[in-house]
Simulated assay, not measured.
Amino acid sequence: MKHCLIVDDSSVIRKVARRILEDLDFEISEAEDGQKALNICREGMPDAILLDWNMPVMDGLEFLNTLRAEPEGERPTVVFCTTENDIDHIARAIRAGANEYIMKPFDRDIVAAKFHEVGLID
């Protein structure tokens, strides 16, 4: 079973994403900020990370830059999931190493389509 780390400061978003991803046969871990997510990754890299941009302690972009510099940090597929929808934010995320980008609000079909595009699900 593939492992997905959901990183978002909103417990509601984490709960919705968890339900969707468990339905898509993922094992789930959760973190409410980038620093906690980094600690989880250092214990064992997930296959995928669903990542919010705006969070306390360490935001999504800082987390992604730090993750990609870690041993095995290139391995997880990172999907930004955020309300930041301007082209500058999207370009910065892709340059930092994001594999895909989802806008909030999202639903099961959107998550499934993006995870399919990046090869995480069939």
Score class of each variant (00 low, 15 high):
Leu64Lys: 04
Gly73Lys: 10
Lys36Ala: 14
Ser11Thr: 14
Ile102Ala: 00
Tyr101Asp: 00
Val12Ile: 15
Glu74Tyr: 12
His3Met: 11
Val57Pro: 00
Ile6Lys: 07
Thr66Ile: 07
Trp53Ala: 07
Ile13Asn: 14
Ala31Ile: 09
Val16Asp: 13
Met55Cys: 12
Leu5Arg: 06
Trp53Thr: 01
Ala31Thr: 10
Gly97Phe: 02
Thr82Val: 06
Ala96Arg: 06
Glu62Thr: 15
Ser10His: 07
Ala91Phe: 08
Val79Cys: 02
Asn99Glu: 11
Met103Glu: 04
His116Cys: 11
Met55Ser: 10
Ile90Phe: 06
Trp53Cys: 12
Ile49Val: 15
Asn65Thr: 12
Asp9His: 08
Asp9Gly: 05
Gly97Arg: 01
Ser29Tyr: 03
Asn85Ile: 04
Val7Arg: 05
Leu120Met: 12
Pro76Val: 05
Arg19Ser: 11
Asp88Ser: 11
Thr77Met: 10
Leu5Trp: 04
Phe26Glu: 02
Val111Ser: 00
Arg42Val: 06
Thr77Pro: 00
Asp107Cys: 07
Arg14Lys: 12
Gln35Asn: 09
Arg75Pro: 02
Thr83Asp: 02
Thr83Lys: 01
Ser29Ala: 12
Glu22Trp: 04
Met55Tyr: 08
Pro46Asn: 04
Cys81Asn: 14
Tyr101Phe: 15
Met1Val: 12
Ser11Met: 12
Leu120Phe: 03
Leu51Met: 12
Asp25Val: 07
Met58His: 07
Asn85Ser: 15
Lys15Ala: 14
Val118Asp: 00
Tyr101Ala: 00
Glu84Gly: 02
Phe80Thr: 01
Ile94Trp: 02
Met1Asn: 10
Asp8Leu: 03
Trp53Gly: 01
Cys81Arg: 01
Ile102Glu: 01
Asp25Gln: 10
Pro71Gly: 07
Glu32Gln: 14
Ile40Ala: 13
Ala91Lys: 13
Ala69Thr: 14
Ala17Asn: 04
Asn65Trp: 06
Gly97Cys: 08
Asn99Asp: 15
Ile94Tyr: 06
Lys104Ser: 10
Ile40Thr: 11
Arg95Glu: 14
Leu24Tyr: 00
Pro76Gln: 03
Glu74Thr: 14
Ala17Met: 12
Ser11Arg: 13
Gly44Val: 06
Ala31Asp: 09
Glu27Cys: 08
Ala112Ile: 01
Ala96Tyr: 11
Glu22Ser: 12
Leu5Met: 13
Pro46Gln: 05
Thr82Glu: 02
Lys36Leu: 08
Asp47Gln: 11
Ser11Gln: 14
Asp86Cys: 02
Glu117Ala: 11
Arg92Trp: 04
Gly44His: 05
Arg19His: 13
Phe80Ser: 02
Gly60Ser: 03
Phe26Pro: 02
Pro105Val: 10
Gly44Asp: 09
Glu30Gly: 08
Met58Gly: 04
Val78Gln: 02
Asn39Met: 13
Glu62Ser: 15
Glu32Lys: 13
Ile110Leu: 11
Thr66Leu: 06
Ala93Ile: 06
Ile13Lys: 05
Ile28Glu: 03
Ile6Ala: 11
Asp25Ala: 11
Arg68Pro: 07
Asp25Glu: 15
Pro46Trp: 04
Pro105Tyr: 10
Arg18Val: 03
Leu24Asn: 00
